[in-house]
Structure formats: C-alpha cells, structure tokens
Nucleic acid binder design. Structure first.
Lengths: 208, 208
DNA sequence: CAGGTTCGATGCATTCGCGTATCCGATACG
DNA sequence: CGTATCGGATACGCGAATGCATCGAACCTG
C-alpha cells in the first residue's frame, strides 16, 4: 500500500551482488575497460539481470561509488565514537588515533581515483564528488576539533582545516599505495598530517 | 652508419601528432573509453600509421605521459630560473612565486589522474610514476630551499618537504579543478602550501 | 635522378560488446 | 492453492573496434 515501490525481495540481493562485482571488476580492469558482461560474470548473472537493474555502466558506477563512499563515512563515524576516552597527550597522539579510522583500501582507492578522473569530465558528477567531500569533512572535523580541545588547542577555521586534511589524505594516499612497502612514505604521511593539524590550530589556556 | 636508427624524418612528425591527439582524446573520453581510431582521426591519420608507430594504446599512453610530464619538469626549471632576483619578504611571498610555476592544466590533470589510477593497477608503471615524482621534487626543492635561505629559513629535511608538497599539490589540484570557479578553494590551496612550507622549515639567524 | 627502402593508407575478416525483445521460472497476493 | 505479476535468462541483430596483410607513394641514398 505504500506509495511507489511495489516490488522487492531478491532484487535487492541481485543489485547488491552486481554492485560488489562492479567494485572488483573496476579495480582490476579500470572502469573504462570494464564491460557489462565482466561485471555480470563475476556476480553470477547474465546481462539480462544487469539491464533489468541499471540503465548503463555509468549508472552502476555512480551507484556503486555512492554506496561505498557512504559506507566509508558511516564507518568513520562509528570508529570515531569508539575512541571517546583515550589518552591524548599532544597533536601527534590525536592524529595517530584518527588516521587509522580512514582505511587505505587499495581496491577502493583505485576505483576512487578513476571516479575522480571521471567526475572531472562530467560536470554533473563534480557536484556529487564535492558534496561527498563536504560530508566527509563535516563528519571528521568536529571530532578532531573536540579531541584537540581536550589537549588545549583551538581551531580558528575548521572548514579550512577540513579541506586541507582531505587534500593531504588524497595526496599521501596515492604515494602510500604506489609504494606500499616503503615505510618512509607512511611515516611522512602521518608527519604531514601532524604538522598540518598543528598549523591549523592554536594553543589555548589550559587543558581540562 | 650510426648504429640502430636508420630511419627518420616525417616519422617524428607523425609520432608527435599522434601523441598530441592522444592527450586531447584521452582528456575528453577518458583513456579507457578511447579508441585507436579516435586518436588517429584527430591526428589526421589512419590506423595504419598508428600501428606502424605503436604496438598498442597502452604504449601510446605511456609514451604520451612521459613526454608531457618531462616537458612539465623542464618548463618548471626554466620558470624557476626566471625568477632569480625578486623581492622576497616571507614564506608566503616565496610560495606565491613558486606555485604558479606549476600550471594547473585541466586537460593534463584529467589524463594525469587516470594515469595514476592506471599505474596503481600496473606494478611496472608504479616505478615510472614514483620516479617521475622524485624528479619533480629534485627539480623544485633546491630552488625552494634556496629562496627560503634568502629570507632566513633552513630546511632540515628537504626530502620530506618535497614529498609533502607533492601530496599537497595533487590533493589541492583535484579540489581546485573540481570547483574551478570557487576562489575559496584556490586561496586555501596557497594557504596550505604556505603553512606546510613554514612547518617544514625553521628560522635561522639572519637574512643576507 | 634512378633505386631501393620506409611509411602510412586501404581493405578485409573477425571478434567483441551492446541493447532489446521475448520467454520461463519464481514470488507475492487473494 | 491458483493466478497474476515480476525478475532474470535466453536469443538475436547490429555496430564498432581490432589487427593484419597488402599496396602505392614519399623519401633518402648514392
């Protein structure tokens, strides 16, 4: 009786499996070189199922990306909630708690990078991407600000810090995944984050 | 009589035009969705010419990327040389001289982003990419260090600064090109660079 | 300027991927 | 339970892109 959706059930399962398959296929082949059939094969369906659920590969790509990145944000949020009361001494310790909350998934990052390139070509997708980045910043920065407050630091311009951290994350993520076995790169990633957070916050009077 | 290359002349021209066409086509369509024929059409040749010069689109992609990125580095070098004697007061003025030397080319960045994604899938290309980043850092950091020296600042760990700046550049470039008409993003880009350079350098005694 | 060589054009066969139209089994509903 | 609807499979035709094999023209060389 509800308005709109009259049909459901295994359909969700099918969609889900197609989306998962797409992530894997895109990561291996690259989005541009991927075909509808590859995705269907991996998901265990035929093209009929695909076209019954999506109009095009582009649409699937977008749907997959949105779902996945949304999951990432919620994952971040819960992780943040988990570390409510931990020992915090300085900026470095704060960063070292928060950074691992953003997992560097090789598979996801490949797809993510291609989505960015894709978005740069499609004005419509640009808004989607920037909106997502805003969401991420809005999710992370308040926690960061709170934690910094606990060690006696204030953040004059949270939005600027958010944008800076996203840039730092993206940039260093590339470097880390290009040389996953080079520990130096990873250390420098943390270092950079620490310095940026420091630079965007100021010491205040006392710590509780 | 020289060993090796016995043939040349218009071939260079052909190659060149194919490479240029490839850049444009890849930027518009994305590498993955580009075809040999599209590149040839834009260059004014037929597929015969292509297969006579390259074995595959992948090979062309790599060749084009290498040429272009090499040009970028030499371009940077000459620009740096040009600003030998300019007024420099503080870190910000230094950054404001150096940043524009790295042009944010929309077309190139799209291709570049896809190449990165491509490299993440091909171990062989990873080395190529990291090597190029090293080259870029090696080209830029010495100038930066020298300029900082002129305003009484030293850089304890130039390599770390190099990696940090590359990350910052890549990350903020994405943001700027996603919202090219948003001046805030651009300002923050410069800001971030200034703060990072500041954080990675220390004040010394006097300035000449 | 004559010779052979090289470069790029052309034609062809083939494979690949797409999108649709149709059919059959599964599923919800009365 | 029977039945109507839905979801995915199957089958088909089409267009596009590939890679090669061959041909004619442009190019150096002596």
């Amino acid at each position: 009786m509800e308005t709109g959706k009259r049909v459901t059930k295994r359909r969700a399962e099918t969609r889900q499996r197609l989306l998962e398959a797409a992530l894997a296929v895109f990561a291996e082949e690259g989005f541009g070189r991927s075909t509808v059939e590859q995705v269907c094969d991996r998901a265990g369906y035929t093209r009929g199922a695909f076209y019954s659920n999506f109009a095009s590969l582009d649409e699937l790509f977008l749907a997959m990306w949105e779902r996945r990145s949304a999951e990432l944000v919620t994952g971040m949020r819960t992780t943040f909630d988990g570390l409510a009361d931990t020992e915090l001494a300085d900026v470095r310790s704060v960063v070292e708690r928060l950074l691992p909350a953003i997992p560097l998934d090789d598979v996801w990052y490949r797809v993510s990078a291609e989505f960015t390139a894709h978005a740069l070509r499609n004005p419509g997708l640009r808004r989607v991407l920037t909106a997502r980045e805003e969401t991420i910043a809005d999710a992370a920065v308040p926690y960061l600000v709170a934690l910094l407050g606990r060690i006696g630091r204030a953040v004059p311009d949270p939005a600027a810090l958010g944008q800076a951290l996203i840039a730092v994350h993206d940039g260093t993520a590339t470097q880390c995944l290009l040389e996953p076995d080079n520990p130096t790169v990873w250390h420098r990633r943390t270092d950079l984050a620490v310095r940026v957070v420091t630079a965007y916050s100021t010491e205040t009077g006392g710590k509780p």
